[in-house]
Amino acid sequence: MPFSFSVIVEAWPTFQAGLITTAIFCCAASVLGLLLAVPIALAHFSRSWAARVPAAVLVEIVRDTPFLVQVFVIYFVLPVVGVPMSSTAAGILALTIHGAVYFSESMRGAILSVPKGQVDAARASGMSYPLTMRRIVFPQMMGYVLPPISNQLVGLIKDSAVLSIISVPELSMAFQNVLGTTFAAPEAFVAVAVLYWLLTSAVTLMMSRLERLTPTHRSAQEMTSLLAKADR
């Protein structure tokens, strides 16, 4: 049976609507998630356990449960404790929290990758903790944080497909609709695969532009040991 592009063309409005919804959900969740990730990441380094423990618990819970179940919990349990929930709200909230936890782990890893000596020197000079983070750790951490976050943004886009299960009219729901009406599986799959690929490529491209703008400022010692490892 030949591959018929006309099927895709006819179904385009459905795909387009789904694509836009996915793009909007993912943009919103990414921005909110990145913002939320910062306090979560920093909480791990706090001296008070009132900050460390809730953050660690949140991260562990989100990492050890399926995203779908998180969506269901937010959609079905929160209204019961007084938080009204539409599928849009639940979708964005679930995606945001899920994203925030994973972003925060990347940030935490990046902060830990900055050699401890850099912080020692700052503290020994009398620099306060916020000043040290701002002037020394943050600039150096950028080089370590962008690659994992780039991967996780792609993961977020793919995770958003799950939201169709609570009837969010995004791209994978468009796929299911087209599949249900036309039964043209190969065409529908190719179309949706290309569209997801477009979304993820856009993100990867944007992130690699950003990566080029932030040099890693690795010390000569680090570079030597990195090069030695790469030689293996």
């Binding site: 000596g117 850099q118 020692d120 020197a121 503290r123 020994a124 009398g126 400022h217 010692q221």
Partner: peptide, 24 residues
Amino acid sequence: TEANINRMRARMGMVFQSFNLWTH
């Protein structure tokens, strides 16, 4: 307090084995 600790540290200079110059 952090502020006092930092003030004390500023009165002492420290040089490290691994130099720890801020690489950026």
